[in-house]
Design a protein around this nucleic acid. Sequence first.
DNA 1: AAGTGGTCTAGACCACGGC
DNA 2: CCGTGGTCTAGACCACTTC
Lengths: 240, 240
Amino acid sequence: MPQVRNNGLPAYKRIQGAILKLLEAGQLKPGDPVDSERELAKIHSVSLMTARHALAGLERDGKVVRRRGAGTFVAPPKIHFNKLMSYTEQMSGRGLKISSKLLFVNVIDTAPEIAARLALPAASHLIKLERLRLGGDEPFAIETCYLSAHDFGGLMRARLDRMSLFSILEHDYGLRIAHADEEVDATTADAHSARLLGTPQGSALLRIRQQIFSTQGKIVMYVLGLYRSDRHTVLIRRFR
Amino acid sequence: MPQVRNNGLPAYKRIQGAILKLLEAGQLKPGDPVDSERELAKIHSVSLMTARHALAGLERDGKVVRRRGAGTFVAPPKIHFNKLMSYTEQMSGRGLKISSKLLFVNVIDTAPEIAARLALPAASHLIKLERLRLGGDEPFAIETCYLSAHDFGGLMRARLDRMSLFSILEHDYGLRIAHADEEVDATTADAHSARLLGTPQGSALLRIRQQIFSTQGKIVMYVLGLYRSDRHTVLIRRFR
DNA sequence: AAGTGGTCTAGACCACGGC
DNA sequence: CCGTGGTCTAGACCACTTC
């Protein structure tokens, strides 16, 4: 008998969803065995290959670990290496109370180098958004974001001081963020930065330049961040 | 008819190997179409599912791109993001002539913090290896490596000034390097570093601490690197 | 319309792990 | 030994892209 369209969702995704639901509900903890291929095949009335396909996908995403002869198990808690997170997301999860102070927001049109970073024509109108990031009561970082004013004009009226920029982009503009290419180097604090960050002039700062890409491959934002080195380190996992 | 053991190699790996051979030989360029699933199945006398499995593996590794209704194509030239490379490997590929100057090599046993980074007992004997890295004729970086003296005693007699440390570990000790966890922050040059690197005291340096893991999950080396910020930036790709 | 990848079946044998 | 994942068959229909 040919496959039956239950609801337009492929069977293997349905199976994955069922397992993911158990994971998120905490009913399955790291190390716990997941239903075997044969069990899943019976439970969901699919063939073995389809159940296998479902588990293979979950393994590729690091959700489960499969051990020949033993079974399939919930993967150990994944350390979030090389994960793109907004400042807000990074800090929640730590006990730090985070806040932002809007330093500057306006439209500029004479920043050809920035426009180039966004893959836009040199004279494009850009939203420039400069924020001081604080953790606890101490300043951590200065972040300057640039976006196309044409595409994101409404941003100027958003609750930028209260909402995460990421969530505004994802919810109000319906775009999904895929990845960021970052350039990290070191610099020293000039008088302006030092005053804002409350550090001595000449102290070490991490400088991170980010191009943030949507799932369509478009560069939606360029961010230049200056981070107090005594409060910030970048973690990377590199593979051979 | 049940599967036939051609040589102990699974059929899907044999197919992958055949395609990879064409890629490496340059007979297939980025964008070129690869044999379709059905063609591969015929050519290699396997079922469609097996040919599919082969292509799925190559896609997971980023070697090919599959487009429904269109075909399977050689993936565009991969930019080596988040790839762990030795200094030697990073620089070859750029026109820079690279060299190293051995500053210090000895066994130490009073570096409990370093030993901890290597997951060794506090008083372990460690090989400490300090090198100045040069590109062209200019100093780029100071790299200090630490390894277990017990496991890698023979290193002291190796051609450290001529051979890549990575290749010594991989060839002489037969261990495969899997990944590195890195901590990146910024600091300023003290008198000693400034003199070695030929920069003013107080200039910005990138500091990178690496724990290098073997495929067995053991930490084989800890590296502390200080990089001239005007000559070095770290590139990362982060995913959402 | 022809060809492609995506999904799926209902079985099979093999190699490995734990008991 | 039994159950597990790993590999594989010989087909099928669907959704999509290209022409």
